[in-house]
Design a protein around this nucleic acid. Structure first.
Lengths: 357, 357
DNA sequence: GATTAGCACTCTACAAAGGAGAGTGCTAAC
DNA sequence: GTTAGCACTCTCCTTTGTAGAGTGCTAATC
């Protein structure tokens, strides 16, 4: 509770300056040491010009208003999740990456690839190495993209491989089974027809567009053609199982908060389940930019002791997906935010280059 | 050491019958309980008709010859890795899967897929659910396969997607970059030429075959054609990064031998590194059938406290890859062997069906 | 009124000590 | 060759004690 002392310099709507300073110091120290921070430590280590006793009083207030908590009666204080939230929103010092760090990132990306899937994997490898946290990436979603190129390839008599290249350069393939054999030439004809009709069409409203566009062809062709089209539309409209790649899961083992196997288990299960991995990144991919979710803010219950920092990547102003890292709430937010942000931007640039070629 | 008592019924080249029985009982009990087994327990639980003291003498002998060991002076005995090896080779009771288990496996595979990659993932998902161990699968290797179909698809001016379908139905794609634009029609011509020339050719000796086969075409075409061929051969001959999928890594957390994070870490790192995953399965995929490696028999040092049970899967008598599980050396080998074997066979059947279509 | 020194109190972490329980190895008897 | 008996060993658990860190409260000071 803010008691409204008139003599205190107070930050607009938040804590007074000194409480803020103490919250910041406690958080910084705890992030670094993973040990509860006591009043004496603060007084000695950070010259705030006040005695431990005063700090104790302030910390007591901060605890009362929910920003700090005590693991047990005679321990120092650690930030509550609410405290971390305040820290992240108001106190965190921006810490841009050093030249050597930037250099390191660029080096890691040195092995140029033209394959988007490989690039995505490379990205989270870099991310997990830099942050030392498990890193995730949500691959571009087929539905959000639009057609650039389509090719139907006969695999055998009854199976056709549908190869789609999106405007952002993502290559996707689907297998469809036809109830009747289709000749290769026929497929070729259909392919080139589709390429003409579907340039730039969003994959989301493929069905409608396609059916409208090829009405006249419909008349010219037989039932087989019709059925093939139906199958094709169905295959492409089937919502893709969302691919969320993971890298560096072992890093979580280094974190003291998960040194007990029982704490670790839910996290590992979370990371191993693709659907849950998707949930972690899904929300973030809706809005542009960096997003931090702390503790109970995470929808996945298993991540209630964790924080997740995500950033979207985009090509030509359109968001394609998101990257993110998962770690304990005691996380060096300043650094992680910088790294995640930079890597996301770097990925965006690389993808933009690829799509221009 | 076998001391050659004349009065003992001795198994050919191995331990005498009673020692074998005791080794078996110790191993069975330890596999189930994860606790060292004492002489009294054995005497009470398994009616061998001998007293604890006799059992103690026998166990002492078994320890001396390296089949058993004691975690500490006053604990019961547990099998040494050599003991497990003997158990697996000579003592293990075959335990065929029950009808309900077989049914369960078939049910899990119910969601039929025509995509081999999906099928592989499905397979290890089943495997990890049944064994409760981390499960791996080595995808069919491009090099071991032969051509069935090839298609060159233009992605944009300078990039070509090479789509290869192997005889076993595996679809692989590679991206190549040409130093000059190639027209779609030209690609189409090359594709159909290659399809004619390369039917059934092994991907391993692609380069030689191709160059021999198309000598005359070479003359008929220009330098660009020549260069494209070179790029193509190079792309296809580049040894594929071996894909080894993983599922159910969290299962390892359930094993008491890895409840300490320091024991767990090397295993997790092993499982997370694709190259190491590959090493686990690589040897096994050379020879047909089931293979068990125990403790130090594993080449990967991190797996020296583990056993790995693998089985190959095949189509038309040719081995395509292998599946396997990794667990502590204290593993229910009888059950795991049955499950791994059955799942591998089942996968083989499914793949055979697919390749026939 | 805000700050601080001083002090009693609380809690954890760690080490030492003791006892119960399980299991062995050895010896002597069967 | 087998077994009963027993001393011995080792782990695991509980108890006890202590050091250390940190707090909250009170009364004095600024």
């Amino acid at each position: 509770m803010n008691r409204g002392y008139s003599g205190k310099r107070r930050v607009d709507g938040g804590l007074d300056v000194r409480k803020e300073k103490i919250l910041q110091v406690v958080t910084d120290d705890y992030i670094e040491s993973a040990e509860p921070v006591g009043s004496r430590t603060i007084a000695k280590k950070y010259n705030l010009g006040i005695s431990p006793a005063t700090i104790r009083n302030e910390m007591s207030d901060l605890e009362e208003s929910g920003y700090l908590r005590q693991p047990h009666t005679s321990a120092g204080r650690i930030p509550s999740h609410q405290g971390y939230r305040y820290y992240v929103d108001a106190l965190m010092q921006e810490r841009p990456l050093s030249q050597s760090e930037l250099e390191a990132i660029r080096n890691e990306f040195e092995a140029k690839t033209k394959r988007i899937d490989t690039l995505l994997q490379q990205t989270i490898k870099v991310l997990s190495q830099l942050t030392r946290f498990p890193s995730l990436i949500l691959a571009p979603q087929l539905h959000a993209a639009s057609f650039k190129y389509i090719q139907l390839v006969p695999i055998n008599e009854y199976n056709i491989l549908v190869l789609v290249v999106t405007d952002s350069g993502f290559i996707e393939n689907k297998l469809i089974e036809t109830p009747f054999p289709i000749h290769e030439d026929e497929l070729q004809r259909i392919s080139s027809m589709l390429n003409k009709k579907l340039q730039g069409v969003s994959l989301r409203n493929l069905g409608a567009t396609l059916m409208r566009e090829i009405k006249e062809e419909m008349l010219a062709h037989d039932r087989f053609f019709h059925e093939t089209m139906q199958l094709l539309v169905k295959a492409l409209e089937t919502k893709e199982k969302e691919r969320v790649y993971l890298e560096g899961a072992v890093n979580i083992l280094e974190q003291p908060e998960f040194k007990e196997i029982e704490k670790l288990k839910p996290i590992m299960m979370l990371l191993e389940t693709e659907e849950k991995r998707y949930n972690i990144l899904a929300d973030s991919s809706l809005t542009h930019g960096i997003k931090i979710t702390i503790g109970e803010e995470n929808t996945e219950e298993a991540a209630h002791e964790c924080s997740i920092v995500t950033a979207t990547y985009e090509v030509g102003g359109r968001t394609l997906g998101a990257i993110g890292v998962l770690g304990p709430t005691r996380m060096d937010y300043a650094r992680v935010v910088s790294v995640v942000g930079f890597v996301a931007d770097y990925l965006s640039d690389l993808l933009t280059d690829l799509s221009k070629k």
